[in-house]
Amino acid sequence: MSPDLSILILDENRIRAAIIETGLREAGHTRVSIVSDMNGIVRRIAETAPDVIVIDLENPNRDQLEHVLQMSRVVERPIAMFVDRSDTEMMASAIEAGVSAYVVDGLRQDRVKPILDMAIARFNAYSRLKSELEDTRRALEDRKVIDRAKAILIRTRGLTEDEAHHLLRRTAMQQSARMGDVARALVASAELLLGEKSTGDEP
């Protein structure tokens, strides 16, 4: 595989585009460009003469891109495809990851596959990053609300902190719910019943 293919990344999400670009550069591709705005896309395609265009599946401009590629006189006869029409598994994993690629006709599959593999891996890495961030944020929020719930239990039922914690955990297990959700429900009920505006601080 010669790494001198021209690759264009079309992604409105600049962070994700940068992640893909880094990956491709690390794999030895030097001709990688990023476009995050469809304005002037025809000119950019003319300038970069891409062999492969990687685009975010959720990008609403996919229809426009397909048209540009169809109309484009820059490349001989570009066709939109997912690497190889017969490679259903590859297409499925690409779509699963949220990436699609347009490949200029005549480019051999063995040259394109590593690029799409890379894009898929990077798309997945980005999704993981995002969900990890969300998990962390949720864990933080959970901890706060659990503390508030415990404070309410300590105050209203005279439990120790340990007992309050165990009670919350047991209830969560019985309801097969998350502890954070049980705590959230308890805090909400306390606000309703007791007019609590607990901030988690002891009174």
């Binding site: 609403p60 996919r62 397909e66 779509i95």
Partner: peptide, 15 residues
């Protein structure tokens, strides 16, 4: 969905 291309491909692949 955000594009006709997406609907077409997602339908074809079984999503």
């Amino acid at each position: 969905e955000t594009s006709w291309a997406n609907i077409r491909d997602r339908l074809a692949i079984g999503h």
